[in-house]
């Protein structure tokens, strides 16, 4: 059981977001409230959209009167599940790549490869992601004047997930590989090998238990990174699952997100930063909360693995003391009996 408060706070935030978003879909069919004009009890007009944040509209409404908090709620499941999935894929694939890297490569080759791979540090992810994802996610206009996407919705989502995963595998793989190699250098591995353990057994019984907690922390960091990339992509009008662009030459609508996921909301509302700053900031603050939740999970988990043995050790000591007392008693008993 994890006793860190930080971990549970972060976990709770994420679970509440996802479950309430799913519930909103299930029970209310994700219907976003639209209020364009607001009257008081005597039917006097008291305001028109956009509304600033208030008790009635926690994050305000946009100029068309759509309640942003509802939109955020509707989009939470897409964004958070995508982020968690990309994080898991990143760690999983890097882990798989790292296995031969740590187990089969001799030390000097591994170091050389590591140095070569560190050149990826100079290729900024956002720029490359924008560049590659642009043609996938933007709606295009063909010669007949019809709007179309190059790929189907499912292909767009899976391509985005794959690309955001593959771009970090070289760096992450070498990092995880180095962690694994440092575990393989420990003394207990050597004794396991002396006792006749095969590579598979060393991997299963020693490497995996030691790597898993570290991988959870790496996963949290990766999720944070993915969230940040989502805000960047959102600002640059590349929304998760596709950007709906209006090619109408007269009064075209601004690019729209197809599912109200958060990066789309960021992109939609950031342009209003000077007119209605609260509206622009709402979705970004939600991103901030999600990032904070992942950070808390990571830190809490780290605290947990640093302190998880403390209590156990205490228990062991107490048990030993108890056992010793019992032993003394019994030996005392024994002597008495012998005397009698």
């Amino acid at each position: 059981m994890i006793r860190s408060v930080k971990f549970w706070i972060g976990f709770f935030i994420l679970v509440v977001f996802i479950i309430s978003s799913l519930g909103f879909e299930l029970f209310y069919d994700s219907k976003v409230r639209q209020v364009q004009l607001l009257y008081d009890d005597q039917k006097n007009l008291i305001g028109g959209a956009p509304f600033d944040p208030s008790l009635m509209f926690p994050l305000g409404t946009d100029p068309l009167g759509y309640d942003i908090s509802h939109k955020v709620l509707q989009g939470a499941k897409f964004t958070l599940i995508a982020v968690i999935a990309i994080g898991v894929f990143r760690v999983l694939f890097s882990f798989i790549v790292a296995i031969p890297f740590a187990f089969y490569l001799p030390d000097n080759i591994r170091k050389g490869l590591d140095q070569l791979l560190s050149s990826f540090y100079f290729i900024p992810l956002t720029i490359v992601a924008v560049f590659i994802l642009g043609p996938i996610l933007r709606e295009q206009l063909n010669a007949q004047g019809e709007e179309f996407f190059l790929y189907s919705f499912f292909a767009r989502v899976s391509l985005e997930v794959i690309i955001l995963t593959v771009l970090v595998v070289p760096l992450l793989g070498s990092m995880i590989g180095n962690m694994m190699a440092s575990i393989l250098k420990e003394d207990f591995i050597e004794s396991a090998q002396l006792l006749g353990a095969s590579k598979w057994r060393v991997f299963k019984k020693h490497v995996i238990p030691h790597m898993l907690p570290k991988l959870v922390i790496v996963w949290c960091q990766q999720c944070v990174q993915v969230l940040i990339i989502f805000t960047h992509l959102g600002y640059l009008k590349l929304f998760f699952g596709g950007t709906d662009i209006d090619f109408n030459p007269m009064m075209a609508d601004p690019p729209k997100s197809m599912s109200n996921e958060w990066s789309g909301l960021v992109g939609d509302y950031y342009t209003q930063i000077h007119a209605n700053p609260y509206i622009a900031l709402g979705p970004i603050i939600m991103f901030g909360i999600a990032i904070y939740a992942f950070q808390l999970i990571g830190e809490g988990f780290q605290q947990h693995i640093q302190t998880r043995h403390v209590k156990k050790k205490k228990d062991v000591r107490l048990n030993k003391e108890r056992e010793m007392k019992i032993e003394q008693k019994s030996s005392f008993d024994f002597i008495e009996k012998r005397g009698a």
Binding site: I228, Y235, Q295
Partner: peptide, 20 residues
């Protein structure tokens, strides 16, 4: 830890708004 989790876009927005 709290500051670390500010999204960069939020920082830019706040700087912009602060100057105004």
């Amino acid at each position: 830890t709290f500051l670390e989790s500010l999204p960069d876009l939020l920082v830019f927005a706040l700087v912009q708004m602060g100057i105004v």
